[in-house]
């Protein structure tokens, strides 16, 4: 294992220290329990938007803390959901009197820990669970679909709604609408190595890729020979489009995401192909996001996320945001 770390035991804490140093104007980082909080929290009268999850997906979620997006993020150990006391601490630091919305990715651990926090919180707390990964069959025989790329879009859009003053019920309703309209899927060219494990989470041969991966180094649905970029993009986009389904005439946000180790040159290349495939289907890409925003450590690979937009979502997407990882309008 080659990583720029001092000690697997302290990697999350050490990275948080660097984050604090890098963004003193935006963030206050607390270490026990670990919470990344918007520098000007609590914002009076605003619904607090709080998320969290295992570390190793940076910039998710800490990189999205700031004006127009999250009030706080709760970073768990690498690939491990945070504990309820982190969430409780975030709620108490951020509640400005309008309650808190917890954005939870659909994993058993995340759901249970946020649920426990919700039960214990003294503020008014609601939570929404995002489950946008079409690679997982949503059946009685699974823990349901995972929350993946759609999380970034949800956090931006509902963050903007809270910033403009929407109340907790409105934030929940908007979240449900976004969750109902967003679908994602990912693939891996290489595995990642969890620091406290030291060996790759799975083994892939030089000519294999894994389709339908999550963001925790879990193996995917299918192992297939590496194809061309066009084949890869279409292997992700087809199930996404057919799932909702997205149809001709739909206006969408296309989010082309790197799993961490795939460089921008490949990501742009894939993005161009995806735009073409959507144009071929008569789907209009109105907004786009390209970059490493929800990652699996150093994994090489990508995911695609498609969100069906309406006018309000577009307005909220375009609204000012000022966080370490997303910034515009300010």
């Amino acid at each position: 294992m080659k990583k720029i770390i001092n000690d697997p035991e302290t990697v999350v804490q050490d990275a948080l220290r660097g984050m604090q140093a890098a963004h003193p104007d935006l963030l206050s980082v607390h270490y026990d329990p670990a919470v990344v909080v918007r520098a000007d929290a609590p914002v009076q009268g605003k619904v607090a938007i709080i998320s969290g999850g295992g570390s190793g997906h940076e910039p998710l979620h800490g990189g999205f803390v700031g004006r127009g997006m999250l009030d706080a993020a709760c970073p768990g150990a690498v690939f491990t959901s945070p504990t309820p006391d982190q969430v409780l601490d975030a709620v108490s630091r951020c509640d400005g009197g309008a309650g808190a919305l917890l954005i939870v990715k659909n994993y058993t651990g995340d759901v249970l820990n946020f649920e426990t926090a919700g039960e214990l919180a003294e503020s008014e707390v609601r939570s929404v669970v995002i489950d946008d990964d079409v690679a997982v069959k949503d059946s009685l025989y699974t823990a349901g679909r995972r929350g993946v790329g759609g999380t970034v879009l949800l956090e931006k859009i509902v963050g903007a709604a809270a910033e403009r003053g929407d109340d907790l019920a409105a934030c929940v309703a908007l979240s449900e609408r976004v969750i109902a309209s967003v679908r994602s899927m990912g693939l891996a060219l290489t595995s990642c190595t969890v620091p406290h494990v030291g060996s790759p989470s799975f083994e892939l041969a030089d000519d294999e890729m894994e389709i339908g991966i999550g963001i925790h180094g879990e193996p995917g649905r299918q192992r297939v020979p590496v194809g061309t970029a066009s084949e890869m993009v279409s292997a992700l986009l087809t199930p996404i489009v057919e799932d909702l389904p997205f149809e001709a005439g739909d206006r969408v946000l296309l989010f082309t995401n790197s799993m961490g180790g795939t460089p921008l040159i490949e990501l742009y290349l894939a993005h161009g192909i995806a735009e073409q495939l959507l144009a071929d289907r008569g789907i209009t890409v109105e907004r786009r996001l390209v970059g490493p925003y929800i990652t699996s450590l150093e994994m090489q690979g990508m995911s695609l996320t498609l969100l069906r937009l309406d006018d309000e979502m577009i307005e909220l997407w375009d609204a000012p945001v000022h966080t370490p990882a997303l910034r515009w309008g300010v």
């Binding site: 491990t80 959901s81 426990t116």
Partner: peptide
């Protein structure tokens, strides 16, 4: 355990 384990196991064992 609830405040230190995390993941699914933390709340369940807790």
């Amino acid at each position: 355990l609830i405040s230190t384990v995390g993941g699914a196991a933390g709340p369940l064992y807790g």
